[in-house]
């Protein structure tokens, strides 16, 4: 499967918490040869003070003191350089003064050539709102974001972002992870299998496919989807095992995944209204998972 013209959006919040997200996000972007946009979403000042905050920031810029988000983007840019994701070690590419305002966001214009397309974006507002605007304006394929303690976050990410979502929570970059492909009869399962296979192949990961039925009977759709997944993984020469388990799907996914898998599943086929009121398998899994999870649309 060849992916072309894909754009990934990677949300970072701080040096302290975003390092695993940045490491894994840049690895995946490299795997898919994707254009990568790093976005920092900062808190927006109350509207009543906006002009005055702007005045204060203009004053600070004269002293070469910049928005906290610019410091985080600078750190992320330097990481991408030092990790080899960007093909130059020229440290002068990042200049905080080269910031342009466009579409209610700020973009740092990087000087020089880095061998890959990277955008550094600064936005202010509510995180989901800003990520959603960014996704609609720039047509990303995948949004990569760190885990959050906020209860509604999982729901809002799956419900409102139009892209696939990779939530990098409790990820240890030094650990060897396996891929848990959750297979059912949803349309998005097919995309999830292909997406997962590309990652597994490039990162040398072992794949477990898991099909869960609430009854002992596995319907035709489930069996067909599992068979197709197996066939595809085999054709890609990816080592894998297939599992069929009876039980509650969400609980089974989580028990099977433990802390050494990255869960990958397709988005639910339910209507947005049902998802809003009753949730969906991906939403419930994401809410309860303590490992990284990728939901493919």
């Amino acid at each position: 499967m060849v992916y072309s013209n894909v754009k990934f959006l990677l949300a970072i919040g701080s040096k302290e918490y975003s390092e695993p997200t940045l490491i894994v996000g840049s690895l995946i972007a490299k795997t898919f040869k994707a254009d990568l946009s790093l976005v920092y979403v900062g808190e927006k000042p109350k509207q009543i003070f906006e002009g005055r905050i702007k005045l204060s920031r203009d004053s600070l810029a004269k002293w070469e003191i910049y928005h906290p988000g610019i410091e985080v983007l600078k750190w992320a840019f330097k990481y991408l350089q030092s990790s080899g994701y960007l093909e130059t070690t020229d440290g002068n590419g990042f200049n905080p003064e080269n910031i342009v305002e466009e579409h209610n966001r700020y973009r740092l214009v990087l000087q020089g050539s880095f061998g890959r397309d990277v955008d550094l974006i600064l936005r202010e507002g509510k995180i989901i709102d800003e990520l959603r605007k960014e996704c609609f304006e720039q047509e990303y394929t995948l949004t990569i974001i760190g885990g959050s303690k906020k209860r509604r976050m999982a729901h809002d990410l799956v419900q409102y972002l139009p892209t696939s979502i990779f939530v990098v929570q409790n990820l240890d970059p030094t650990k060897q992870y396996k891929l848990l492909l959750c297979v059912d009869d949803s349309k998005a399962t097919k995309s999830a299998v292909r997406f997962g296979a590309t990652i597994a192949k490039n990162q040398g990961m072992f794949v477990n496919t898991l099909t869960v039925s609430k009854t002992t009977q596995f319907g035709k759709g489930y069996r067909g989807a599992a068979k197709a997944a197996g066939r595809y993984l085999k054709s890609q020469k990816i080592p894998f095992e297939q599992h069929f388990i009876t039980g509650d799907p969400v609980k089974t996914f989580l028990d099977f995944a433990g802390d050494d898998h990255i869960i990958m599943m397709g988005d639910s086929k339910q209507s947005p209204l049902i998802k809003f009121f009753f949730g969906s398998k991906p939403i419930k899994t994401l809410k309860k998972a303590s490992c990284p999870i990728l939901i493919v649309r």
Partner: peptide
């Protein structure tokens, strides 16, 4: 107050840095 805060902030932050 905001004029003063805008003028004093760089002084304070530079001192901290």
């Amino acid at each position: 107050e905001h004029t003063v805060a805008a003028m004093m902030m760089p002084v304070g932050l530079t001192l901290i840095r």
